[in-house]
Design a protein around this nucleic acid. Structure first.
Length: 981
RNA sequence: GCCCGGGUGGUGGAACGGUAGACACAGAGGACUUAAAAUCCUUUGCUCGCAAGAGCGUGUGGGUUCGAAUCCCACCCCGGGCACCA
């Protein structure tokens, strides 16, 4: 055995032996606890792995290796997310077919993962594009369909003109396709969706039950976007042309309903019981509008007359030419501000706009048409520009504010989204920034309904601040205050009988009132929308649906699964919104369950469908009868430690949770959450050269310079080049491959460097030299083991308890057991940089014991029996604690010390509390919180003894001079604080 | 704008509310060597001081506490996410 780390001489040998021994095959020992460690399902890119990817795999490997040594049944699988756009795009670029291409790339990934010694059980590997796998993806699709969670509808969707397919909301970042960066267009085509919105509340609630980074949970909460509020109906009314030209008239003050009641009685309609007037009116209107079949019981002419009258009650109004009531719903989280509603806004796409238009003046109609056309053609990105100037048009119609009967103008504006809530809002410019901006721009009224705080008034004050004066000015001229008062902690004004209530009281009161009125309900809204899974692309899992000739959708029969993706030479997307599969008639034409002719669905599923259940298949990967054996899945699930990048916060991680919950409801899995513990690793950044822009060159926003290859950077004048830390990527030319790293420094040095350089979840600024530092550490380990060869006793375990400890051996064993405790705890916490630190510290402590200073070597007295045994224990412990991080070296040393087999199969060192206890502890002495001295004392000394010892400290006395001790605070064995003045 | 992280020596980073700077890199000095590399030893937060020692120190300013890098409030800076969601 060498006395230094020489990776070239043994690392490859050990990898070969592990392979031959089939060492990492998943064990399913009875009675053992399980541990499921998993890395995110990677897409095997043609660029291969960089050391950046390894930062993901190594930590999982460390904890899995430790768990295996602790006797757990460990599931540590790997496979490939092979279906999807990245693979297909790359295949098109290379003029090849994705299937053989992905096969090659996956093989390279596997080779690279093996090269750095990751302990994956490759016997469980699969690709999501394997028919044996996607058969079951289709099976789950059918399950979703049967449960009403998969549906097809025409919708305005995100069309990526470069990828030539639609994208899910989650794949659109700031109006651009996540991968292509192209501006996304709106397209109206029939699409398949999964009804994830049904699970919104559970996806939100169960976040509290899992151990994930807070940031990821928050991102999911925001994405789900729950808000509580009130949804209520607003009636549309139309002014006559003459009246429309006049200023808006006040609503009639006397009680129109009393008159109406008389009319109702006169009609012969006898309401049952003691219904309120409002309910009577509502009932009539309901009969007319919704239950025409009931209406025949009454004299229709008479009722029509009542309705005319009812509308006529609204002063200054004329009945719409159609004689039909129009209304629309609005959603608000601030029903307390309802008295401040001065206008309403509809999204341009709102369907009621069609019904309003025939009843308004032609001028309005023309403007609205023009605006809607503009909105339709405006790209999603243009519409989402930050702080965009508000646009909109008045429809010519009005809505009745149910709170005060006032008629407020209905506008159309694209700042109201058709896809959220009801696509219509009550606008309260007094207390909402967006409405305020709109009101200011279009000269609409602003009515404050919440009393502004003194702070707000002060911030907007002109000249000397006088609260009352400012308040008066505020009430008179809100618009001059430049932004609305936005507080949820104040009282109401201008709100009739609700004046003086707090915001939360008013929310409760007004919510109940609206419910009682029967025009609305308290409601919960979510931002989350259904998951769009159709892709008009070839390389994906076919959707197992047959469209029959009479327009029905049928599931492909279960025994016909998988619906295999046909092999075709030409699979490029057409760009017309149809999938390439639509061109393959042999694929398209088929018969359904009943033998009717039909056509297959030609869209494929987006890649995220395939990765939403792979962690279940790993539990039982070769099952041909079913997707998985429920017993196996209930044994292994949930994943105990799931490691991957934070970029999947709202895509994969949300979808996989959704599928798991559906499968739970179908009693196919026993967990509600798939990933109990999630960790996001940091990235590896590499020094990347940029040059300053030349004349005529322009930098995009946020760019500092122009990326140049290293070769070019070396040739450029020094003042033209600068370096920045950037994520490793092939396009930046800054990639370090695992092959290069292993060649230069060795696999174990690479592994330890990735662990040690920064905390697990922090970014690493890569330096090749850093690996060599860890190589030197490994050399020190080799030297220590080499130097103890002569004294080492392999059977120390059987002998050590019978030997009484002398000073030196007690110290040794103490250090050993403290290290076992620290290392085990840190690996458990995935605090892996400190894991390596403890090993280094341990080596530093062993060094002087093992390697006497030169010259003294000859006269070294022979070691005592106890010391020899303690040292032997230290040797084994060091090797075993090192094994998860540096498995090649550990096995090399394990063999050199005469052990059979592999460290992977050896038992993890056990921590003995008694041995770790110190004889003496150092106690800090503070005077008034400032450190003045320390003393050593037995750890079980009582409090008075420690107080006395503290007072006796020499350096303490001068600081107590002329002071009286008021108090003494003792943290036994740690600290004494003398409080004196 | 809102929401998450994060600001600690020359550098990467350690620190259950209890001795700030573990562990490492870099620096300085030394040993071995003809020399270098490698290795080993010592030293290293800053300021003042020959020293003993004292003072100052975890982005800034306040607060809570016997005691704050750690908890609370306000602000500044960096990284990430969301983005007209009513």
């Amino acid at each position: 055995m060498a006395d230094r780390y020489e990776p070239a001489s043994f690392e490859a040998k050990w990898r070969q032996r592990w392979l031959e021994a089939d060492l990492f095959r998943t064990k399913e020992k009875p009675d053992a606890r399980k541990f499921y460690g998993l890395d995110f399902f990677p897409y095997p890119s043609g660029a291969g792995l960089s050391v950046g990817h390894c930062k993901n795999f190594v930590p999982t490997d460390v904890i899995c290796r430790m768990k295996a040594m602790q006797g757990f049944n460990v599931l540590h699988p790997m496979g490939f997310d092979a279906f999807g756009l990245p693979a297909e795009n790359e295949a098109i670029k290379r003029h090849t077919h994705p299937a053989p291409m992905i096969e090659r790339y996956a093989q390279r990934y596997k080779d690279q993962m093996e090269l750095i010694g990751i302990s994956y059980d490759w016997s469980r590997a699969f690709k999501s594009s394997d028919p044996d796998y996607y058969k079951w993806t289709q099976w789950i699709f059918e399950l979703l369909y049967k449960r009403g969670l998969a549906y097809r509808k025409s919708a305005s969707v995100n069309w990526d003109p470069v990828e030539k397919t639609v994208l899910a909301d989650e794949e659109v970042i700031a109006g651009r396709g996540e991968r292509s960066g192209a501006l996304v267009e709106k397209k109206w085509i029939p699409q398949w969706f999964f009804k994830i919105t049904d699970y919104a509340q559970r996806l939100l609630d169960d976040l509290d039950t899992i151990d994930w980074p807070e940031g990821i949970k928050t991102q999911q909460r925001n994405w789900i976007g729950r808000s509580e509020g009130v949804q209520f109906s607003m009636k549309v009314v139309f002014h006559t042309p003459q009246q429309a030209a006049q200023p808006e008239s006040e609503a009639k003050k006397d009680d129109p309903l009393a008159e109406l009641e008389a009319e109702i009685r006169a009609s012969g309609f006898q309401p049952e019981g003691d219904m309120s007037k409002i309910n009577k009116a509502k009932e009539i209107s309901d009969k007319l509008n919704k239950h025409a079949e009931d209406a025949h019981k009454f004299d229709l002419d008479q009722i029509d007359g009542i309705m005319q009258k009812m509308r006529g009650l609204e002063e200054g109004l004329e009945v719409s030419p159609h004689g039909k009531e129009l209304s629309f719903d609005v959603f608000t989280t601030r029903v307390d501000t309802i008295f401040g509603m001065t206008f309403c806004v509809l999204a341009p796409e709102h369907p009621i706009v069609e019904k309003i238009l025939p009843n308004v003046l032609p001028d309005h109609r023309a403007e609205v048409d023009k605006y809607r056309e503009q909105a339709r053609t405006l790209s999603e990105a243009d519409r989402q520009v930050v702080n965009r100037e508000k646009t909109g048009v008045f429809t010519g119609a009005y809505a009745v504010n149910p709170a005060n009967g006032k008629h407020v103008p209905i506008w159309i504006a694209d700042y109201v989204l058709a896809t959220y809530g009801t696509g219509a809002i009550m606008a309260v410019p007094g207390h909402d920034q967006r409405d305020f901006d709109f009101a200011v721009k279009f000269g609409l009224d602003v009515v404050p309904v919440i009393k502004p705080s003194a702070d707000y008034l002060k911030a907007h004050a002109q000249g000397d601040f006088n609260e009352e004066r400012e308040y008066a000015r505020y009430l008179a001229d809100v618009k001059s205050f430049t932004d609305p008062f936005d507080s949820k902690d104040a009282t109401l004004i201008n709100s009739g009988e609700y004046d003086g209530l707090t915001v939360s009281e008013a929310q409760k009161g007004l919510g109940l009132w609206i419910e009682g009125l029967g025009i609305g309900d308290r409601k919960v809204q979510y931002k989350l929308r259904d998951w769009l899974i159709s892709r008009q692309r070839y390389w994906g899992c076919p959707i197992p649906i047959i469209h029959t000739r009479d327009g029905e959708d049928q599931l492909a029969p279960l025994d016909s699964l998988p619906v295999e993706l046909p092999w075709v030479e030409n699979y490029e997307p057409s760009g017309d919104g149809a999938s390439p599969l639509a061109r393959i008639t042999e694929f398209v034409n088929t018969t359904d369950l009943d033998g009717r002719l039909g056509q297959r669905e030609t869209d494929t599923m987006g890649g995220f469908a395939c990765s939403s259940w792979y962690f279940l298949r790993f539990c039982d990967p070769h099952n041909e009868e079913r997707a998985w054996d429920p017993g196996k899945v209930s044994y292994w699930m949930p994943v105990d430690c799931y490691v991957g990048g934070a970029e999947h916060a709202v895509m994969h991680l949300l979808y996989a949770r959704f599928w798991t919950k559906v499968l739970y409801d179908a009693e196919l899995v026993t967990v509600k959450e798939p990933f109990q513990r999630l960790l996001n690793q940091g990235q590896v950044l590499a020094r990347t050269p940029f040059r300053k822009p030349r004349e005529g060159e322009h930098l995009a926003l946020g760019e500092e310079g122009i990326l140049v290859p290293f070769e070019e950077a070396k040739l450029l004048p020094e003042d033209q080049v600068f370096y920045r830390w950037a994520r490793m990527s092939k396009s930046k030319g800054n990639v370090v491959t695992p092959e290069e790293a292993v060649e230069q420094a060795g696999a174990d040095a690479l592994r330890l460097y990735l662990l040690f350089r920064a905390p697990f979840d922090a970014d690493i600024e890569w330096e090749n030299k850093g690996m060599e530092d860890l190589g030197r550490f490994l050399s020190r380990v080799f030297r220590i083991i080499d130097a103890t060869k002569r004294d080492y006793v392999q059977e120390w375990r059987d002998l050590i308890d019978f030997e009484s400890l002398d000073d030196s051996s007690r110290k040794l064993r103490r250090v050993t057991h403290q290290t076992i405790r620290n290392v085990t705890g840190d690996i458990e916490k995935l605090s892996l940089n400190t894991y390596v630190s403890w090993l280094m510290k341990y080596v530093n402590e062993l060094n002087p014991v093992v390697l006497p200073t030169r010259g003294a070597q000859e006269e070294k007295t022979p070691r005592s029996r106890a010391e020899v045994l303690a040292l032997s224990e230290a040797v084994d412990t060091l090797i075993l604690l090192l094994a998860p991080g540096a498995p090649h070296s550990a096995d090399e040393l394990w063999e050199a010390t005469g052990h059979d087999g592999f460290t992977f199969e050896a038992e993890w060192p056990r921590f003995n509390e008694q041995l770790a206890v110190e004889d003496l502890v150092t106690v800090a002495v503070q005077v008034n919180g400032k450190l003045r001295d320390t003393f050593e004392i037995s750890p079980d000394a009582d409090v008075p003894t420690q107080e006395e010892a503290a007072k006796a400290c020499l350096k303490v006395a001068p600081h107590l001079d002329g002071k009286t001790i008021r108090r003494m605070i003792v943290v036994p064995g740690k600290l004494v604080n003398i409080v004196a003045n």
